[in-house]
Each structure stands twice: as C-alpha cells, then as structure tokens.
Amino acid sequence: MPDTNAVPQVAIELKMVSADSAGYKVFRDVNVAFPRGRFSVVLGATGSGKSALLKLAAGLMVPSGGIVEYLGRDMSRFTRKDEADFRAHSGFVFQDAALWADTNILNNVAMPLRVHRPWMSQSEIAESVRLALKRIGYDEGMGYRPSDLSAGEQKMVSIARAIVHDPDLIFMDDPGSSLDEDGLERLYELLGELGEAGKTVIVVANNSEFAYRFADMLGVIKNETVVAFGGYDETLSRASVELEGSLARLKARGGRSRKPRYPDSPAGDPGSEMSQRGDV
C-alpha cells in the first residue's frame, strides 16, 4: 500500500482552462495541478503566456473556459469570505513590480497587513515591513515613492509585499527580472527559505536557473498550452519533444546535487504522482 500521506495535496489546479485576451486566444485546454508545499517552475519563451497562466492560477484573470480550483474548490464560486481567505494566504509578485505609485514603500508593503491583519498597530506593521524588506536585501528608506527607486529595487519591494504577511502560497512572475547579481543571490536565499518552510511557490520564468535550483515540479508552456508538467527529472526525461531553449539547457546541465526534499515520493520526485495531470 502506498503511503497516501506522501501524495502531495494539490494547491491550485487548472482544469481544461482556456483564456482570451483582447480577442486573442492565450490558452486552450490547459490542465495543470500545482502541488501544495512544493516549488513549481513553469518555463516558456517570451510571450508564450506564462504571466497569463500565473494570473489565471491566482484568480487575477478570468478564464474563458474551464475551472481553476484552490484546494479543490472552484475559485469562480468563491464567496467574499473565501476570496478574502485566499488572498490572506497568498502573495503575488508581478513581472513589472506593479507598485502603487501614489504612496511610499512602507505603505506599499504594508497593504496586505492592513487588509488582512487590521488589529496590528502601526509600529508592528512598520517592523514587519522592515523585516520583509531586509529579507530580500532592500536597504533604502521606506519613505521613498516607487518612482524614486530603480527597477531592481522596485522588484525587491514587490517581492517584500508578496511575503510580508507570511502567505502559504506565493505566485512569482519572473522574480529575477531587473535584479542585479547581489539581488539575485538574495532572491535565491529567500526562495530557499520559502521552500524549506514548506510554502507552495509557483514561479513562471524564462530563466532556467530557478528551475535548476528550486523546482520540485517543472512545466513548459508552448503552443498556447502547457505541454509538459511533472517532477523535475520526469519532465526532463519524458518531454523529449519539447527539449529546446531553457529545457534543453537544463538537460545539458545534468542531474542536480541537492538532496530530494520529498523522500516519501518515489525516487524523491514529487512529480511522479502529479504528472498524470499534465501532457508529459
């Protein structure tokens, strides 16, 4: 009998999801399940629809067909309370930071706390914001407006905003873009910490480094759909047809040295159970 406790619970699942944008088909019939407590990375070329996939998964974009589920519940049927609960337990890093231009860094990062933890005092909020910014390596003042910062610093603030309320589920859209080497190192440290803490992290990127370093689950977007999704090794070994670009580079780098985080899963690969949901 397999140990059912080892089977990853699905955090977000897209079932036959299609999406349109400005009259154009972005996706068609996407099936993908992001397991809970795991680090999923979806790779794809520029303009392949990675951001749209992430927004669909995060409920920021309404699908034109199919359903998106969070812990097995259809997100389109969320009540106001369900929605608030989902947002209280999730954070989203936008590709272009998407900070609120009319207020300062403190208020930008503090917003999730003000919304979801209204009982916190101003000093507690300021301290939490400071710690979140420190984790990602932002060391400028909190009184600046976003327009006073470089693109890399804005990205750091955006990441801090997504983690300040310690969410269980974190969506990241190309989190390394605009960051310099030091910033990237801090980001890798942060992602490592999030992984160790058992957070569900879903990253879309066109940089294979994230997948190589962190991916428990690996997916590929191509031709308006997710053509492969499964455990890291499984995706690399089985998706031979898709071996181009980032995926080919990952394959060329060979096996990873880090220990499997999920020894209960066959071969330490959490994708074994999940891959049936994809088209690998």
Binding site: L60, F92, F94, A98, W100, A101, M111, P112, V115, R161
Partner: peptide, 17 residues
C-alpha cells in the same frame, strides 16, 4: 486608466482589496 496599464489594479486584487 494609468493604474490599469501599470497593473496596479491587479496588485490591489492580489492583496485582497
């Protein structure tokens, strides 16, 4: 309109506002 283009509206949605 500017907030829509710069994704600030989506950012409000993402934090539950």
């Amino acid at each position: 309109g500017t907030m829509v283009v710069s994704h600030e509206i989506e950012a409000y949605l993402s934090v539950g506002l």
